[in-house]
Amino acid sequence: MQSQPETLGLWGIAVALAGGAMRGSIPYMFVSLGECLTEKSGKINLGMEVILLMGAVTAFGVSDVTGSPWLGVLAAALVGMTLGALHAWLTQQPSVNDVAAGIAMIIFGSGLAFFFGKRFVAPMAPQLPLIDLGSWSSAGAIRSALRISPLFFIGIALAFALHWIFTRTSWGLKVRAAGDDPQAARALGINVNRVRFIAITIGGALAAIGGAHLTLYFPGIWSEGISGGQGLMAVALVIFAQWSPRRCLAAALLFGGAQALGPSLQSLGVNGYYHLFNASPYLLTLGVMIATCTPHRRLAGMPGALGRK
């Protein structure tokens, strides 16, 4: 894998970072798009962290048993839908708070994921086929850096599709209406609860596909710490992206890039401060929260009724 780092230099760092950003952005992309859809309808789903985890373990298990990674992705999406539907049902009960329900989901779901994941700790499941973007180069490092999962391109297409749905379809308008002013939406004859239920359920499916990437891409193993808080960071990312699917894409690349900083420097022989560089997505999340949250104004683009019945 490792060729001559000194011959690659700055160019090498750039390519390694770009490749790392594309790889690392995939879970952020799917979870943030799922959360974006959920929040546009006026609900918060912190349980995305555990949907990511359940997606990862389901995809791994199904891929291992059936030998088909794509079936794994599909199964992950179905599990994500189920968890999303559970969250939707929970949060639509009278006096259930979105955040509290989300935290309960995290505790419940992590236990579930670790339970099912126990037997998968050792092996390696069949992985998704990769798309080679680096075949033009003769340098092995560049070629391996630019082997990208097809989920990356599906994620990009999804972001644009979601934008199209929000602006061009009647269901998209209903989701935005439900999230911005549910009372007004009800007066327009919109079934707010049903619109939200569907949005949260689909959002869960998207997040679980992000989880599938975690176990169906190199190194393709399941471990309990695999999600590493990416589901929660994606919630912050949606705020940063001002609830716009296309900006979610850019923000996911930024977070993916921050995550790739440590590994790509290491692959070039820079080993100092490895753990500090690995902490950069968390630092970035903190920075985003500090920069965007102020008591003095409402956030731009925020759905008016976020977190309210």
């Binding site: 209903k174 911005d180 683009g301």
Partner: peptide, 14 residues
């Protein structure tokens, strides 16, 4: 009963 973040056109069509 207008949705604040939408345009007048979107509100009428919705």
């Amino acid at each position: 009963t207008l949705i604040p973040s939408m345009t007048v056109a979107e509100n009428l069509i919705l």
